[in-house]
Design a protein around this nucleic acid. Sequence first.
DNA 1: ACAAATATAATAGTAATACTATCATTTTGC
DNA 2: GCAAAATGATAGTATTACTATTATATTTGT
Lengths: 222, 222
Amino acid sequence: MQNLAISIRISDDLFIKDPESTDLGKRIISKSIELLDELGFEAFTFKKLGAAIGSPESSVYRYFESKHKLLIYLMCWYWSWIEYKIVFGTINKSSDIERLKIAIEILTKPIKVDNSFIHVNEVLLNKIVISEATKVFHTKDVDKENDQGYFAVYKRMVQRVSELILAVNPSYKYPNMLVTTVIEGAHQQGYFAEHLPSITDKKRGKNRVCNFYSDLVSKMIS
Amino acid sequence: MQNLAISIRISDDLFIKDPESTDLGKRIISKSIELLDELGFEAFTFKKLGAAIGSPESSVYRYFESKHKLLIYLMCWYWSWIEYKIVFGTINKSSDIERLKIAIEILTKPIKVDNSFIHVNEVLLNKIVISEATKVFHTKDVDKENDQGYFAVYKRMVQRVSELILAVNPSYKYPNMLVTTVIEGAHQQGYFAEHLPSITDKKRGKNRVCNFYSDLVSKMIS
DNA sequence: ACAAATATAATAGTAATACTATCATTTTGC
DNA sequence: GCAAAATGATAGTATTACTATTATATTTGT
């Protein structure tokens, strides 16, 4: 089957030169995902990235002004992609409940390979989101970066799911809290399952996390 | 009223020399809490801390081998303190439900000043936990540090609250997931309320977060 | 096809960070 | 009052996160 001719559009402010516009740019994105997964954000440097793609670090700096901005770029990409999956996944569904159920599944189930965007490995990107995404918010520059709109995609996606909740129960008072609790909670469970298993209840059976949070949402809004 | 003659005991592995054992050590703890709150973890350095207490950075290094270890030390202190509050707060309570309710309140309500430990400002420490605690887990060294027992206090506290849940409903299948969802969710709501208010539902009324999570727990286990 | 514009490579340099090391001085415990 | 321990003063190192400069390669418009 042919791929859709779409691409994820990211705010200009997050890069100096659009990485989607050149071959080197795409290799920067592609390799940075692999390296971030492999090394973690702290040990990841533009020098290592440059070495991995066979270019000097100065070339990387022509695309991104810092590794922090690159991480924000990747998070924006990820949330745009999730938003797209939610929008497409809920189109033409018959009931509000079903639409909400699908959105929660997309947010809490393990990510499957997706070949629509060849230079982005969504499975690795999801791992990076789980391990590193909090570092995007938890900085002394949050407020400034929020003003500059860097978190707009994330916030819009939260709003969208909140609206699905309100469609099911228009009088529910805490849709945003519920959505962020689910999203961040699901990521956290994934991380704990891998690194601090004693404080999860994950067993052999798959999708416990998805079931837990799906159940949580339906109990909270009914 | 006289203070209880207790002190929070922290694992030896987290420091080189026990900061509780000397005056300089206590000033290191006290000032590091203020500075971490003021600067954030990234901009916080032992050099700045040294300057703030009028000592060279080499003296700070005699107590802690890195700022990362110092942060873990502070998190351990915090969770030990919370655990102590839960244990004392639930003693002599008549019902399991009431004990659980108290624990959830301790975990989700804003922290009030506590003068039991003069060199620790618990209100600031709570702010640091909200802003920086994820950085303690989200490192490439998690597994190693977990093996060394650095997160034992946190895990034990989670277990304890899980047991309160199981006391109320012995057949509930996901007590740990529920507890970590509540703890980390409540912190997150505090952070979002301050920095990304559009995705919270916090209004004028206080204790919305506590009410939300108390409600969540009771709905999930009943 | 060719000059001009643009992108990239190669290299160097800087201030700050996260430490380690050494030795002198002060404090303390007996 | 003396030895041991704690602290201060100072120096040094490898790495990081950049910026800057110049040279070379590649693309583009005509």
